[in-house]
Every structure is written in C-alpha cells, then in structure tokens.
C-alpha cells in the first residue's frame, strides 16, 4: 500500500523533472522546483513507513521549511535581481538614489 503510493509519487517526481528540464519559461521551472520539493517531503514520509521506521517525519518537516525558504529566495531574486538588503540605495537623500 505505502509502496504503491511511493511509486506513484516517484512517477509524479519524474513528471516534475520533465517540466524542469523542458521549461519553457522560468516560472514553470520555479513552480516545478517547488512542487518537486513538496514531493520529496511526501516521499520521505512514505519511505519511513515502507521501511517500517516512521520516525523520519521531523526531517520531512525540515524539508518543507527549507523548500519554503528556497522558493522565497528564488522569487526575491526574480523581483529585485539581487539578494541582500536592497532598500539601501533606493532610500531618498542618498547620492544616486532615484528620486
């Protein structure tokens, strides 16, 4: 039962990889990466049950958090083309700041 679910999940991961390889746009790839991370979280949970050691669930939680942070970073990169404190130069009164 859990094994069949794992196989279905691996097939879904394969589909995500196809979308990640093929694109065509960058947003498709970001979405595919995020979905792939979610699939990994589910797979870790399921693998724990397949191997009769369902005590890996906290790692699945950690993955979910990391996946979230990664997606936020990617989207911030898209928005500002930079990471880090971006508001410094845009503050008014500084030389070179856009007015």
């Amino acid at each position: 039962m859990f094994f069949a679910a794992s196989l279905a999940l691996l097939a879904a991961m394969l589909l995500m990889l196809v979308r990640l390889f093929a694109g065509p746009s960058l947003y498709d790839r970001v979405l595919a990466l995020n979905a792939f991370g979610t699939k990994t979280v589910l797979l870790i949970g399921l693998v724990g049950f397949v191997t009769d050691r369902p005590d890996f669930m906290d790692i699945a939680l950690l993955y979910a958090l990391i996946n979230f942070v990664g997606t936020i970073a990617v989207l911030k990169f898209f928005r500002y083309r930079a990471l880090g404190d971006i508001d410094d130069d845009a503050a008014p009164g500084k030389p070179g700041a856009p007015s």
Partner: peptide
C-alpha cells in the same frame, strides 16, 4: 551593500 545596478 549590494552592487547598484540600473536593472535593480
């Protein structure tokens, strides 16, 4: 401080 760019 980041490198300031026109794109940004």
């Amino acid at each position: 401080k980041p490198i300031r760019r026109a794109v940004e």
